Measured scan of single mutants.
Amino acid sequence: EVTIKANLIFANGSTQTAEFKGTFEKATSEAYAYADTSKKDNGEYTVDVADKGYTLNIKFAG
Results as ranks from 00 to 15, higher is better:
residue 1 E to D: 11
residue 2 V to H: 07
residue 2 V to M: 05
residue 2 V to I: 11
residue 2 V to Q: 05
residue 2 V to K: 05
residue 2 V to D: 03
residue 2 V to W: 05
residue 2 V to T: 06
residue 3 T to R: 07
residue 3 T to V: 13
residue 3 T to F: 06
residue 3 T to W: 07
residue 3 T to S: 08
residue 4 I to D: 00
residue 4 I to F: 02
residue 4 I to M: 03
residue 4 I to T: 00
residue 4 I to V: 10
residue 5 K to R: 14
residue 5 K to T: 15
residue 5 K to L: 10
residue 5 K to C: 11
residue 6 A to R: 02
residue 6 A to N: 00
residue 6 A to T: 08
residue 6 A to V: 15
residue 6 A to C: 15
residue 7 N to H: 13
residue 7 N to V: 15
residue 7 N to M: 11
residue 7 N to E: 05
residue 7 N to C: 12
residue 7 N to G: 01
residue 8 L to Y: 14
residue 8 L to Q: 01
residue 8 L to E: 00
residue 8 L to T: 02
residue 8 L to S: 02
residue 8 L to G: 00
residue 8 L to F: 14
residue 8 L to K: 03
residue 9 I to H: 10
residue 9 I to V: 10
residue 9 I to E: 06
residue 10 F to R: 03
residue 10 F to Q: 03
residue 10 F to T: 03
residue 10 F to Y: 11
residue 10 F to P: 00
residue 11 A to E: 07
residue 11 A to S: 11
residue 11 A to D: 06
residue 12 N to T: 07
residue 12 N to C: 11
residue 12 N to M: 05
residue 13 G to C: 09
residue 13 G to Q: 05
residue 13 G to E: 04
residue 14 S to F: 13
residue 14 S to V: 13
residue 14 S to E: 13
residue 15 T to R: 12
residue 15 T to Y: 11
residue 16 Q to C: 14
residue 16 Q to V: 14
residue 16 Q to P: 01
residue 16 Q to K: 12
residue 16 Q to R: 12
residue 17 T to F: 11
residue 17 T to D: 04
residue 17 T to N: 07
residue 17 T to E: 08
residue 17 T to P: 04
residue 17 T to H: 12
residue 18 A to T: 11
residue 18 A to Y: 15
residue 18 A to V: 15
residue 18 A to F: 15
residue 18 A to I: 15
residue 18 A to N: 08
residue 19 E to G: 04
residue 19 E to P: 02
residue 19 E to S: 12
residue 19 E to Y: 15
residue 19 E to C: 15
residue 20 F to G: 00
residue 20 F to L: 02
residue 20 F to I: 02
residue 20 F to H: 01
residue 20 F to C: 03
residue 20 F to N: 00
residue 21 K to W: 10
residue 21 K to Q: 09
residue 21 K to V: 12
residue 22 G to N: 06
residue 22 G to A: 05
residue 22 G to E: 02
residue 23 T to M: 06
residue 23 T to F: 07
residue 23 T to Q: 07
residue 23 T to C: 07
residue 23 T to P: 09
residue 24 F to M: 10
residue 24 F to R: 07
residue 24 F to D: 02
residue 24 F to I: 08
residue 24 F to H: 06
residue 25 E to S: 10
residue 25 E to T: 10
residue 25 E to H: 09
residue 26 K to D: 12
residue 26 K to C: 11
residue 26 K to M: 12
residue 27 A to T: 03
residue 27 A to P: 01
residue 27 A to E: 00
residue 27 A to D: 01
residue 27 A to I: 03
residue 27 A to S: 04
residue 28 T to P: 01
residue 28 T to Y: 13
residue 28 T to K: 07
residue 28 T to C: 11
residue 28 T to V: 13
residue 29 S to K: 14
residue 29 S to T: 11
residue 29 S to L: 14
residue 29 S to V: 10
residue 29 S to W: 12
residue 29 S to Y: 12
residue 30 E to K: 09
residue 30 E to W: 07
residue 31 A to D: 00
residue 31 A to S: 03
residue 31 A to V: 07
residue 31 A to G: 03
residue 31 A to C: 07
residue 32 Y to K: 05
residue 32 Y to H: 06
residue 32 Y to T: 04
residue 32 Y to A: 03
residue 33 A to F: 08
residue 33 A to T: 08
residue 33 A to Y: 08
residue 33 A to C: 08
residue 33 A to G: 07
residue 33 A to P: 00
residue 33 A to E: 10
residue 34 Y to K: 04
residue 34 Y to N: 03
residue 34 Y to P: 00
residue 35 A to Y: 02
residue 35 A to G: 03
residue 35 A to D: 01
residue 35 A to L: 09
residue 36 D to T: 07
residue 36 D to W: 06
residue 36 D to K: 06
residue 36 D to F: 07
residue 37 T to A: 15
residue 37 T to V: 13
residue 37 T to Q: 15
residue 37 T to L: 15
residue 37 T to K: 15
residue 37 T to W: 14
residue 38 S to Y: 15
residue 38 S to N: 15
residue 39 K to Y: 07
residue 39 K to S: 13
residue 39 K to I: 12
residue 39 K to H: 05
residue 40 K to L: 12
residue 40 K to H: 11
residue 40 K to I: 13
residue 40 K to G: 11
residue 40 K to F: 11
residue 40 K to M: 12
residue 41 D to E: 14
residue 41 D to T: 13
residue 41 D to F: 13
residue 42 N to T: 05
residue 42 N to K: 09
residue 42 N to H: 15
residue 42 N to F: 14
residue 42 N to I: 05
residue 43 G to S: 04
residue 43 G to D: 04
residue 43 G to P: 02
residue 43 G to Q: 05
residue 44 E to M: 10
residue 44 E to R: 07
residue 44 E to H: 10
residue 44 E to F: 09
residue 44 E to A: 11
residue 44 E to P: 14
residue 44 E to G: 08
residue 45 Y to L: 01
residue 45 Y to E: 01
residue 45 Y to N: 01
residue 45 Y to F: 07
residue 45 Y to A: 02
residue 45 Y to G: 01
residue 46 T to P: 01
residue 46 T to G: 04
residue 46 T to S: 10
residue 46 T to D: 06
residue 46 T to H: 09
residue 46 T to C: 11
residue 46 T to Y: 09
residue 47 V to A: 05
residue 47 V to Q: 01
residue 47 V to D: 01
residue 47 V to E: 01
residue 48 D to A: 11
residue 48 D to S: 13
residue 48 D to E: 15
residue 48 D to L: 12
residue 48 D to F: 13
residue 49 V to R: 07
residue 49 V to C: 08
residue 49 V to G: 04
residue 50 A to I: 12
residue 50 A to P: 03
residue 50 A to G: 08
residue 50 A to V: 12
residue 50 A to N: 07
residue 50 A to S: 11
residue 50 A to T: 13
residue 51 D to W: 03
residue 51 D to L: 04
residue 51 D to Q: 04
residue 52 K to W: 13
residue 52 K to S: 14
residue 52 K to T: 08
residue 52 K to H: 14
residue 53 G to A: 03
residue 53 G to L: 03
residue 53 G to D: 03
residue 53 G to N: 03
residue 53 G to V: 02
residue 53 G to Q: 03
residue 53 G to R: 02
residue 54 Y to V: 04
residue 54 Y to K: 07
residue 54 Y to F: 14
residue 54 Y to L: 13
residue 54 Y to C: 08
residue 54 Y to H: 09
residue 55 T to W: 04
residue 55 T to F: 05
residue 55 T to P: 00
residue 55 T to H: 03
residue 56 L to N: 00
residue 56 L to Q: 00
residue 56 L to M: 06
residue 56 L to A: 00
residue 56 L to D: 00
residue 56 L to T: 00
residue 56 L to E: 00
residue 56 L to S: 00
residue 56 L to W: 04
residue 57 N to Y: 12
residue 57 N to P: 00
residue 57 N to A: 04
residue 57 N to Q: 06
residue 57 N to H: 09
residue 57 N to K: 05
residue 58 I to N: 00
residue 58 I to C: 04
residue 58 I to M: 10
residue 58 I to K: 00
residue 58 I to L: 06
residue 58 I to E: 00
residue 59 K to E: 06
residue 59 K to D: 04
residue 59 K to H: 13
residue 59 K to C: 11
residue 59 K to S: 11
residue 60 F to L: 02
residue 60 F to T: 00
residue 60 F to Y: 11
residue 60 F to V: 01
residue 60 F to K: 00
residue 60 F to C: 03
residue 61 A to P: 08
residue 61 A to N: 12
residue 61 A to T: 13
residue 61 A to W: 15
residue 62 G to H: 08
residue 62 G to Y: 09
residue 62 G to N: 09
residue 62 G to L: 08
